Amino acid sequence: MRRHLIVLALAAGATGAGFTAHWFVSDEPKREGVVAGATESAGRSPAGRATVAGATTRPFDAARLRRAVRAYIEKRPGKAGVMATDLRTGLSFGENEKGEFVSASVMKVDILASLVLQRQRARRGLGLSDGERDLASSMIRVSDNSAADSLYSKAGHGSGVTKSNKRLGLVETTPFSTSWGSSTTSPADQVRLLRDLVSDTSPIGASGRQYILGLMGSVVEEQAWGVSAAALPGEKVALKNGWTPVRHQGTGWTVNSIGRITGRDHDFLVAVCSGDNPTMGAGVTTVEHVAGMVVSTLRASRP
Rank of each mutant, 00 (worst) to 15 (best):
S92M: 10
V109Q: 02
S138A: 15
M1E: 14
R58N: 10
V82S: 06
L5G: 08
D134I: 15
L87M: 15
A68Q: 08
R76F: 01
T51D: 04
S146L: 10
G54L: 03
H22C: 03
G131C: 06
A113W: 06
G99Y: 02
R141V: 13
D110E: 12
K98L: 11
Q118T: 06
N96H: 14
T51P: 01
V116K: 03
R123K: 15
G94I: 06
G127I: 05
V102W: 03
T89G: 12
L128T: 06
G81D: 11
A11M: 10
V82W: 04
W23A: 12
G43H: 15
H22D: 02
R76Y: 03
D144M: 00
L126Q: 06
E28K: 14
R70F: 07
D86E: 00
V106N: 00
R124E: 08
I73L: 12
A11K: 09
E40R: 14
R88M: 11
F101M: 05
V35L: 14
R76I: 09
M107K: 14
K75I: 03
S114Y: 01
L10E: 01
L112P: 03
Q118P: 01
P46E: 12
P46C: 10
G18W: 13
A42P: 02
I111G: 05
A80R: 05
R119T: 03
R133H: 04
P59N: 11
A50D: 03
H22T: 03
E97R: 06
I73G: 08
L10A: 07
S146P: 00
G94P: 08
T85M: 11
L135F: 07
T85E: 15
V52K: 05
V142K: 11
H22G: 00
T89E: 15
D86V: 09
A104I: 05
F19Y: 09
K98D: 11
P46K: 09
S103D: 04
Q118M: 12
P77M: 09
V142F: 02
G37K: 14
M1V: 15
G81F: 06
R49L: 10
L91A: 05
V52F: 01
D110W: 03
G90K: 02
P59M: 07
E32T: 12
S138T: 10
R121E: 13
T15G: 15
G127P: 08
S45W: 06
Y72D: 08
G33C: 01
V52P: 03
Q118Y: 04
V52Q: 00
T15E: 00
V142H: 09
S92Y: 01
M139D: 10
D134V: 15
E100I: 10
M83F: 14
E100F: 02
S41C: 07
A42G: 09
G78Q: 07
T56N: 02
W23E: 07
G90P: 09
S137M: 13
V106D: 04
G81E: 07
L128S: 09
S146G: 13
G94S: 10
L115F: 04
G90L: 04
E95N: 02
S114D: 12
A113K: 07
V109I: 12
V25S: 11
M139T: 04
F93W: 04
I140D: 01
L8C: 02
V35A: 15
R67N: 12
K79Q: 15
E40N: 15
P46H: 07
G43T: 09
P59A: 08
A62H: 12
R64G: 14
P77V: 06
G18K: 11
A147T: 13
V34F: 00
S146F: 13
E95R: 07
